[in-house]
């Protein structure tokens, strides 16, 4: 579904090489996490995949088609939830706007908006403005907007980096539940090793700069995940320990 091959990105101007050579793929319906040390180019990678940033070399393909701009059936949840929602719109209007742009009939639109807001547990604040909500709730709105858009591919860039631990656990379970219900191909970027192991079917480890794929690790945990039991499995600890060592190596390489 998603093929990233030989991706390289050098920012002009300061000539920062954010990505050296990144290659991986994601099959349809998979949930894959990308981790790497801070500043290694995760956001850059995601923006290239989203078609928001032209790569210096290499290519990205979605469902076989080369990405030259944002693909029509791709949704993104940005890290900065406070800045990705329109403050002058209500929660409902925020979720609805992309559907209006798709010229979806009002009836179907209403169903999708109501359904996705209910799915993220925000049905009763649909008429509030984003700035009246907590950070975790705002990120739920962004997730509802992505889900209502009915994407083929969903990209998330450290979406829970700025919320407290309890909210974060809830949101992780929300993402898992939505992913199971919709089967949407998901690329989830995080710097949190535990989060990557808990959510992912696979974890792609990026090295520190010069950035390449250091490891593509299959997460062989039972498919049913639970905050308590999954995290206390011995295998969970193994995987986490392994990734931790990898990230340390990635840092050290720099």
């Amino acid at each position: 579904m998603l093929e990233v091959s030989g991706l390289r990105k050098v920012y002009e101007g300061r000539r920062v090489e954010a990505l050296r050579e990144v290659t991986f793929q994601v099959d349809a319906g998979e949930l894959v996490c990308v981790i790497g040390p801070s500043g290694c180019g995760k956001t850059t990678l995601l923006r290239c995949v989203a078609g928001l940033l032209p790569p210096t070399a290499g290519s990205v393909k979605v469902a076989g088609a080369a990405v030259t701009g944002p693909p029509p059936r791709m949704a993104v949840v940005f890290q900065e939830y406070g800045r990705s929602l329109f403050p002058w719109m209500t929660v409902r209007q925020n979720v609805e706007l992309p559907l209006k742009e798709k010229r979806m009939p009002a009836g179907r639109r209403g169903e999708l908006v109501a359904g996705s807001l209910a799915a993220v547990g925000l049905a009763d604040v649909a008429d509030a403005h984003p700035w009246q909500l907590s950070g975790g709730m705002q990120q739920r709105v962004a997730i509802a907007r992505a889900v209502a858009y009915e994407p083929q591919v969903l990209l998330m860039d450290e979406p829970f980096a700025a919320v407290d631990a309890q909210t974060r656990a809830d949101l992780e379970d929300l993402v898992l539940a939505l992913w199971r219900d919709t089967g949407v191909t998901t690329l989830f970027v995080t710097h949190d090793i535990d989060e990557a192991v808990y959510l992912g079917q696979r974890v792609i480890v990026l090295s520190g700069s010069p950035t390449v794929v250091m490891e593509d690790l299959k997460i062989d945990l039972p498919p049913e995940r639970d905050q308590l039991t999954t995290r206390s499995l011995p295998r969970f600890a193994d995987l986490r320990g392994h990734l931790y060592a990898q990230i340390q190596r990635a840092r050290g390489d720099r």
Binding site: A50, P70, P98
Partner: peptide, 17 residues
């Protein structure tokens, strides 16, 4: 805001809209 601008690009909000 650039993030808002990117959001518009991703969700097909362009032109007059």
């Amino acid at each position: 805001d650039e993030v808002l601008s990117d959001t518009c690009r991703m969700y097909g909000v362009r032109g007059l809209s």
